[in-house]
Design a protein around this nucleic acid. Sequence first.
DNA 1: CAGTATCCCGCTAGATACTG
DNA 2: CAGTATCTAGCGGGATACTG
Lengths: 121, 121
Amino acid sequence: MPDPLAPDMFAGCADHSTLPVRVGDKWTAKILACLRDGPRRFSELQVPLAPITPKVLTESLRAMERDGLVTRTAQPGIPPRVEYALTPLGSSLFAPLAASCAWNAAHGEELRKAREAYAAR
Amino acid sequence: MPDPLAPDMFAGCADHSTLPVRVGDKWTAKILACLRDGPRRFSELQVPLAPITPKVLTESLRAMERDGLVTRTAQPGIPPRVEYALTPLGSSLFAPLAASCAWNAAHGEELRKAREAYAAR
DNA sequence: CAGTATCCCGCTAGATACTG
DNA sequence: CAGTATCTAGCGGGATACTG
């Protein structure tokens, strides 16, 4: 048997998933996209992300804030007004994200075909 | 309230996750890396991927085969010999994967710092 | 060697309802 | 408006044991 292969292109990602930042989850990438053109309020995010629940949106935003991807700014007053904005770190994620989308555009159909062909047995 | 934002950079990925192909899971990207330099047998994959269980490795490989990312070739005979190899489609995933790794290399430390700073409260 | 067969656990996310 | 509080379900993944 040959020497064990070392998938060392993932050094530093060893723990649990490929990326140390969870952007492969259900909502993070979409939230990033919604914040692309400027800060948005909580309720402004809920609309395009429907049918996301407030609980899940809050959890996602907290995780992103924790990772330094977004900032949360609350103006005191009634009614409350909270704005979420991308940090430079958050914006920098559009590069790998764009690569994924490019792959999808280029090969998505091929993948769907493969899946279809596999099912046909 | 302004018009609903349209995160349309994810058009075609609408169903459930960002990518239609599950490469953000725990093992797919690593399996891809292990197959990078040529076909490998089932047991050859188990070594570098330890402590993966045979069940999970089988499931992952089946999903990748279904998506047209790898081919499975079994030579009849005893003992059985099965080889897994990348397809061109599978190889094409290294492009977006490299972008993710580049981000990680460039900003991983920054993210860790942010997380640490957030915890310090 | 290359898998299957069971059983099980944690975690993400959804449903629903409530509040400062 | 911007959340919080519960409860629950489903799924990816793991442990262990067995087989053609």
